[in-house]
Simulated assay, not measured.
Amino acid sequence: MSTKKNAARTEAPSAEPRWLTDEEQRVWRAYIHATTLLDDTLDRQLQRDAGMPHMYYGLLVQLAQAPGRKLRMTELARSAKITRSRLSHAVARLEKNGWVRRQDCPSDKRGQNAFLTDEGFAVLQEAAPGHVSLVRKAMFDRLSEEQVRRLGEIMCVIADGLEPTGTGADLPWLR
């Protein structure tokens, strides 16, 4: 073994981690519990009422809101925060249902666009009222206007701090 490796192993460990306080631990666990329940509730409702998981619904929403109801696959993966492989699998399932179609990108022969079909748009329009109703019931109806405002501020602070920067980051949508 090299001396450098031995020296690295015998060096004193770095500073003690900043462990969560009891209150921070309580809040963290409550957050994990609530988001897990919310994700499960939304997924079950969309599976039951629209025959799709919540992630697929999110992809259809993004396509519906895009100009011409189409996005480059890489952009769709980036905005969904998923790997290109996972997106390709999801789009294949959506294509099989007739809700999405892939198109070659005219400006880049290597790229592809995902296009929301009329049938996919109709499915989304049919699923949206039940989904929004559940989101309202599960989340917003339980909070005061002040709590909604504060929650929005808090989530923006967290998201801003986690948003990847730079081209060297190990980003799922680049895999």
Rank of each mutant, 00 (worst) to 15 (best):
S88N: 06
V61R: 02
E145Q: 11
W28S: 14
G168V: 00
D118K: 06
A50T: 03
K137H: 13
E16R: 11
A8G: 11
D118R: 09
D170V: 08
F140H: 09
G120I: 01
D118S: 04
W99M: 03
L38E: 02
E126A: 06
D141N: 10
K109G: 11
P164R: 11
R142F: 06
R102H: 01
L116V: 00
R18G: 10
G130M: 00
R102E: 00
R175S: 07
V91A: 02
E23A: 13
Q25P: 14
G58R: 07
R142T: 08
F140R: 09
R86V: 00
D108H: 04
P106D: 01
A8P: 08
E153G: 12
A30N: 13
E95D: 00
D170L: 12
E126S: 03
Q147N: 11
E11L: 13
T74E: 15
M73E: 06
A114N: 04
W28P: 09
D141Y: 11
T36R: 15
Y57G: 06
A122W: 08
R175A: 04
R175D: 06
A114V: 13
E126V: 12
R149M: 06
Y31N: 14
V123A: 05
L60N: 00
A7D: 05
A77Y: 05
F115M: 03
M52T: 01
L124A: 03
R9I: 00
R150K: 11
R136P: 01
D141K: 08
P129F: 02
E153F: 13
L134A: 08
R26M: 07
A64N: 04
E126L: 08
W99E: 01
L46T: 06
L151F: 13
R102D: 00
A128R: 14
P67A: 08
A34Y: 08
G166L: 04
R69N: 10
T74N: 14
S133F: 00
E119W: 15
E11Y: 12
S85Y: 14
R93K: 13
E16I: 05
A77E: 05
R29L: 07
K109H: 08
A77N: 08
D39E: 02
E95S: 00
L46Q: 08
A169E: 10
G58K: 05
F121R: 02
L162Q: 07
H89C: 15
E119M: 15
K70W: 02
A127K: 03
E24W: 11
S88R: 01
A122M: 07
A34M: 12
V157F: 14
A127M: 07
W173F: 03
R93D: 13
L38V: 01
Q45D: 12
V123M: 10
R110D: 10
C105H: 06
D104Y: 15
P129I: 01
V135N: 01
W28I: 11
V61Y: 01
K70Y: 08
A128P: 14
R150S: 10
L76M: 07
M55D: 13
S144M: 03
S107L: 12
T165R: 14
L76N: 04
M55L: 09
R110K: 09
L60R: 00
I154Q: 12
L38Q: 05
W99Y: 03
L124N: 01
D108W: 03
L59S: 02
H131D: 11
L87I: 02
D118V: 12
S88E: 07
E23S: 15
